[in-house]
Amino acid sequence: MNNEFVFVGIAIVVGIISIVLSLVAIHNKKLSVAIIAAGIVSLFASVLYLLMAAPDVAMTEASIGSGLSTLIFFYVLNKIKRSDA
């Protein structure tokens, strides 16, 4: 029962951070900040999956959602910035 209490505390902190970061991702004018914030939301979501007893989903989200997705966003951003200059 004590364990559950700690889990609830961590989940509340992670949830508040990820909602604030998602607002940053939508509201910020700089694209790179938005992409990084969306990646961190994904990473905190994987912590939340781990707390909700879903290790398989946590692994997938950490490697695909926050790793590869952010990488391809930056490929596109780099391409667009370079043809601007």
Partner: peptide, 17 residues
């Protein structure tokens, strides 16, 4: 358009959670 795609990706994360 990139911001719209970021929005879609956050929507996706929310539905999964």
């Amino acid at each position: 358009i990139i911001k719209i795609i970021v929005g879609f990706s956050i929507l996706n994360t929310g539905i999964n959670i």
